[in-house]
Design a protein around this nucleic acid. Structure first.
Length: 698
DNA sequence: GGCCCGAGCCAC
DNA sequence: AAACGTGGCTCGGGCC
């Protein structure tokens, strides 16, 4: 810092603004070095990514708030953006050091470092009097399958009223051996009767599993509970929640330590940071419990659904997936060969451009079809595909590169040290309560890619999906007699409804008929508030016909219409809608002055109830299926919204499958019966139905 | 080499 | 002007 800039240690005064004006004038005349103020204005008006803007603003604010003692002046040097960023880094480093020193100075008296056997003995004695504790781990990183290890453990003992940090893997400082500490804590951590409170339990539990400990007794996960209390929360990071709800401004790991690994942090700093983790977690727990007192239905959702589900998901992720790598490389080889030929032909039509680049592709397509286009997406290309063979080829190119890049070549790289792929399933990531999945996303594998996944040795994949889960929920919630009767009678809803609405015999509304297709698309459209334009596009009909369809649908199924309108009215009155068991989706935008935002919220009302309730049905069923798994020695494997899959031994019996089916059908009972399509397979995507598998049909 | 964003596209 | 809901991943391209 001293080489680059000279800091002038004074506050800005009225004189400064005059000087600034003079400097601006001078600079304009002779292009001299600008003032810092001018530099800031210039820098801030640059086209930066928002994050850069934020960073620069942070520097500006830091300087203005006097952290470095007023405004720095540039000693005859141009104040470039690079210098600003360097200044930001230096500022950050200095602030960070000061902040850490301050934190260490203010270490609460009941934060204790455990470094000796005697201290460990005392801790264990106190732990014996704690029916519930808060737990957290510090680690070298986030990879709990291969790379990373535990470097320290934090515990909060509410009765004894103190918080400990037990370092076991820091580079420096007196500490006990990891194996010793873990061995002593293992009985407590694995004791179901000792309640555990954690923030993002699944992460720490994974870490403990890596070290041979299967934590039990999860009483409360403050991250997942927070998601029930507010699914619109901008951040679920503990420190951010503490800042917002505990009146305890707290810095995130990144702010304090950047990219440093926790094992490099000195123990005095580590103590105050790590012990605070369980301290805050415990306080957040108390805070949340107080709120849930007034929200008994939501408490029930947490305790009956989300909390027990966490351990199910943990084991599910641990089980992972077996990838048939030979099969994958065969597929990749085929696709690469096909791709090479497509690229050769495309080059003839479009020249030597990057076909993956919309920027390069757009003018090339326009030149080819002699027409301006708005986009290069599939919809646009499909509309043009009869104009030129090259467009058809481009569509094929898209298909092949997507398969290759996202799935066939990517998945083998995700195989972990144990030979399996371990996707992450996040139960508190979507506003409706559905699961999301990542690293890799197991929930968007195309049919083509699914064949790469095989059951573990000696096992089969047993999966069931809820047939028409969301339309059934529409029938359930709306109470529409025609829909309910169709399901109760076991008839095909779309066929029945189509025959009725269009006034044609059911024989003309069977599978594959245009009427059935129209009804199917139409019901989904009604549920999700699809506009007539989009619906018309989907069905290949005129907008007028689409309008007529929706009008007739509503006229016929008045209860559906009434229910949808009622949802909006409810949301306007309460600011949220309620799904199965009272789970909430808050929609503050329902009162927005922006028409687009408001209409979006209105569409979300019905969608959230249907989608969220389906998610609840799936989650509850997973919990019950996990119990069945435990009894049978099976293992839960995955969930894809309306589908649940598990691994069972190859010698699974028909009775076993009947039990599985029974859990699928009867865990959540609705006004209409549930239906499930069951598949059994050794290779995903090549499933046989029950009759085929057991040879009950030729 | 990393971060970020939009375009595009996979799933239910 | 028009907009169907919920997600995550890869790529190009802009930035440092």
């Amino acid at each position: 810092m001293n080489v680059q800039l000279r800091l002038s240690l004074r506050s800005p005064t009225a004189e400064d603004s005059e000087k600034k004006a003079r400097a601006t004038e001078a600079q304009r005349k002779k292009g001299a070095a600008e003032t810092v103020e001018q530099a800031w204005e210039r820098i801030l008006s640059m086209k930066n990514s928002p994050t850069d803007q934020e960073r620069l603003l942070a520097v500006k604010r830091a300087m203005e708030s006097g952290i470095i003692g007023g405004y720095p002046t540039v000693a005859g040097k141009r104040f470039s953006k690079a210098e600003a960023l360097r200044l930001w880094a230096e500022l950050n480093a200095r602030q960070r050091e000061e902040k850490l020193a301050e934190m260490v100075r203010n270490t609460p008296a009941n934060y204790r470092l455990i470094q000796t056997v005697a201290q460990m003995d005392a801790l264990m004695a106190d732990l014996a009097n704690e029916p519930i504790i808060a737990v957290d781990t510090e680690t070298t990183g986030l990879d709990y399958y291969d790379e990373d290890v535990i470097v320290g453990i934090s515990l909060t003992l509410p009765n004894a009223n103190y918080h400990v940090y037990i370092p076991v893997g820091h580079d420096e400082g007196e500490q006990l051996a990891r194996e010793y500490v873990l061995a002593r804590l293992k009985p407590v951590l694995e004791d179901e009767s000792v309640g555990k409170v954690l923030h993002n339990y699944k992460f720490d539990a994974h870490m403990f599993i890596k070290h041979g400990i299967r934590m039990r007794g999860l009483r409360w996960d403050t991250q997942i509970a927070m998601h029930i209390l507010n699914e619109n929360e901008p951040s679920y990071a503990l420190k951010n929640l503490a800042t917002r709800y505990l009146n305890e401004p707290s810095d995130t790991f990144e702010t304090l330590f950047g990219k440093a690994k926790f094992n490099t942090i000195p123990l005095d700093i580590a103590l105050v940071y790590a012990a605070k983790d369980t301290d805050l977690t415990w306080r957040l727990y108390r805070f949340q419990r107080a709120h849930f007192e007034r929200l008994p239905k939501l408490l029930d959702v947490y305790e009956r659904i989300e909390n027990p589900l966490i351990d199910v998901v943990l084991d599910m992720e641990r089980a992972g997936f077996v990838l048939d790598t030979e099969y994958a490389s065969r597929l990749a080889e085929e696709l690469r060969t096909e791709l090479a030929e497509i690229e050769r032909q495309l080059t003839v039509h479009f020249g030597d451009i990057n076909f993956n680049s919309p920027v390069q592709l757009k003018p090339a397509i326009e030149a080819l079809v002699r027409e301006k286009i708005d986009s290069t997406d599939v919809k646009t290309l499909r509309a043009l595909q009869d104009r030129h063979d090259a467009i058809k080829l481009l569509l094929k190119y898209r298909e092949v590169t997507k398969l290759l890049g996202t799935y066939v070549e990517a998945l083998p790289q995700q195989v972990r040290g144990d030979g399996r792929i371990h996707a992450n399933f996040n139960q508190a990531a979507t506003v409706t309560g559905r699961f999301s999945s990542n690293n890799p996303n197991f929930q968007n594998q195309p049919k083509y890619a699914r064949k790469m996944f095989i059951a573990p040795p000696g096992m089969v994949i047993l999966s069931g999906d809820f047939s028409q889960q969301e339309p059934r929920l529409l029938a359930h919630f709306s109470g529409e007699p025609v829909l309910i009767e169709a399901y109760r009678a076991g008839r095909d809803l779309y066929t029945t409804a189509a025959a009725e609405l269009f006034g044609v015999p059911e024989s003309e509304c069977g599978d594959g008929s245009k009427y059935r297709k129209m009804m199917k698309t139409g019901i989904l459209a009604v549920m999700y508030g699809t506009g007539t334009k989009t619906l018309a596009g989907q069905l290949g009909i005129s907008e007028k016909e689409a309008e007529d369809f929706i009008r007739q649908f509503y006229a016929k199924y008045t209860k559906v219409k009434a229910w949808i309108d009622g949802n909006i009215a409810f949301a306007r009155r309460h600011g949220y809608v309620e799904m199965l068991y009272g789970r909430k989706r808050r929609l503050p935008e329902i009162k927005s002055r922006d028409k687009w935002e408001r209409l979006r919220a209105e569409r979300q009302c019905t969608n959230a109830i249907v989608q969220g309730s389906a998610a609840i049905q799936t989650k509850l069923t997973m919990i019950e299926l996990d119990k069945l798994c435990k009894r049978k020695g099976w293992q839960m494997a995955f969930t894809i919204h309306d589908e649940i899959g598990l691994y069972a031994p190859k010698d699974i019996t028909l009775d076993d499958v009947r039990e599985f089916e029974s859990v699928m059908l009867n865990t959540v009972t609705l006004a209409v019966p549930n239906k499930t399509d069951i598949e059994i397979s050794e290779r995903w995507g090549e499933g046989k139905n029950v009759k085929e598998w057991f040879g009950l049909v030729s």
